[in-house]
Amino acid sequence: MEGRPFASGLYVGSVMHHRVKPVRHRLSYRVFSLLADLDELPLLDRELRLFAHNRFGLLGFRDRDFGPLGGMGLGGMGIDLKGWAEGQLAAAGIEGGGPVRLLCFPRVLGFVFNPLCVWFCHRRDGTLAAVIHEVSNTFGQRHAYLIPAAAGPDGLVRQRCDKGFYVSPFMDMETAYHFRIRPPGGLAGEPLAVSIRQTDAEGPVLHAALTARRVELTDAAILGAWARHPLMTAKVVAGIHWEALHLWRKGLAIRPRPPAPAHPVTVVKSAILPVSEKAFRP
């Protein structure tokens, strides 16, 4: 692979959450994410000494961590993730056939927890067809929102969907997500952003954002990212519980957890928002 970068890459940046009501609370953490081209995973496993696909490594990706819970394939390693995504697109009447790239936290020394994974699903001509927002909670549940996607003239993708899956015990279910995404590019240093505004009937409740820049995926880059954040994935879980303790101490009540949705994927139609939608600021 000398001289030819992968379609996959690392994205180094930060995650921010800012709750605006009924109490104000803000957090920010430095993180790095993996953008995994699903067709490329076996090649990454062969070419990179510090990356492991479906086995233990410094940085790893296991198929079973994504898609439907309990989905197992040959050897118990997980289902065909690209085939699963293509099946979801076909069932929703959305054209696919192109690359499927998954933005997620990788396993670090075998451990990972992903509150949100973002699947970028493309048509055969390379244009973005849909985004799958895959959400996990700390109760062992996972759910996905499949939303059509189209970039506006400013290059941003804007989407909306109603919340249908329990995540935080301190957040009401009767809310909606408004996504604003700068999709990943293919050049080193290019920016990526996933911003979420969560609203209720009276207005904004929470702003969350991942902002990062691309670093080419090499063994040196993997080692550097790990050296800066050696316990990053463990820190994600610890941080979720630490911040929950802060919210509880600020007086927020725990909301009861409803049953998980009957279907693992919510298909959201006609959810592409116009560029004119009012921008939101954390």
Rank of each mutant, 00 (worst) to 15 (best):
255 R>F: 02
157 V>A: 10
103 L>D: 07
34 L>N: 04
28 S>P: 02
236 V>Y: 01
56 F>A: 11
173 M>Q: 15
148 P>F: 15
99 P>D: 15
140 G>T: 11
259 P>K: 13
133 H>N: 09
213 R>K: 15
57 G>D: 07
262 A>C: 08
183 P>K: 15
99 P>N: 14
197 R>E: 12
81 L>H: 05
205 V>Q: 09
88 Q>E: 09
246 H>D: 13
269 K>A: 12
36 A>F: 01
167 V>E: 10
258 P>C: 09
13 G>D: 00
141 Q>T: 02
64 R>I: 06
34 L>W: 01
209 A>R: 14
63 D>I: 01
263 H>R: 14
166 Y>D: 13
176 A>N: 11
55 R>Y: 04
90 A>P: 00
253 A>S: 13
241 H>W: 02
188 A>K: 14
119 W>A: 11
262 A>L: 10
176 A>E: 13
66 F>N: 04
33 S>V: 01
260 A>R: 13
14 S>P: 00
117 C>F: 02
124 R>G: 12
247 L>W: 03
131 V>R: 08
192 L>Y: 11
272 I>V: 10
27 L>T: 04
235 K>H: 05
221 A>Y: 07
160 R>A: 12
186 G>N: 15
219 D>H: 05
166 Y>S: 09
158 R>D: 02
160 R>T: 09
242 W>M: 11
46 R>C: 03
56 F>K: 09
171 M>L: 14
208 A>I: 02
63 D>Q: 10
148 P>K: 15
18 H>G: 11
46 R>D: 10
110 G>R: 12
220 A>S: 13
132 I>D: 05
238 A>K: 05
16 M>V: 07
67 G>A: 13
279 A>D: 11
231 L>P: 00
234 A>V: 03
42 P>H: 11
170 F>I: 00
123 R>T: 02
144 A>M: 11
105 F>W: 11
42 P>L: 09
24 R>W: 06
33 S>P: 00
21 K>W: 08
33 S>L: 08
32 F>N: 01
145 Y>R: 10
195 S>I: 07
184 P>G: 12
137 N>A: 14
33 S>W: 01
4 R>E: 01
270 S>Y: 00
144 A>I: 06
66 F>D: 12
76 G>W: 09
153 P>Q: 14
73 G>T: 12
270 S>A: 09
151 A>P: 01
277 E>D: 09
74 L>W: 14
62 R>D: 10
119 W>P: 02
264 P>Q: 08
100 V>G: 12
28 S>R: 15
218 T>G: 12
113 F>P: 03
121 C>Q: 05
85 A>F: 01
44 L>P: 03
274 P>N: 04
32 F>K: 01
73 G>I: 12
56 F>Q: 13
277 E>N: 02
252 L>A: 06
68 P>G: 07
122 H>P: 03
216 E>R: 11
44 L>T: 09
77 M>C: 07
230 P>Q: 08
275 V>R: 15
162 D>K: 13
105 F>I: 04
12 V>C: 01
257 R>C: 04
58 L>Q: 05
248 W>K: 12
196 I>N: 11
237 V>K: 07
199 T>N: 15
179 F>D: 07
18 H>K: 09
74 L>E: 15
120 F>S: 14
12 V>Y: 00
93 G>V: 02
235 K>E: 04
158 R>M: 06
129 A>M: 05
186 G>Y: 10
37 D>I: 03
34 L>I: 00
37 D>R: 10
30 R>M: 04
191 P>V: 08
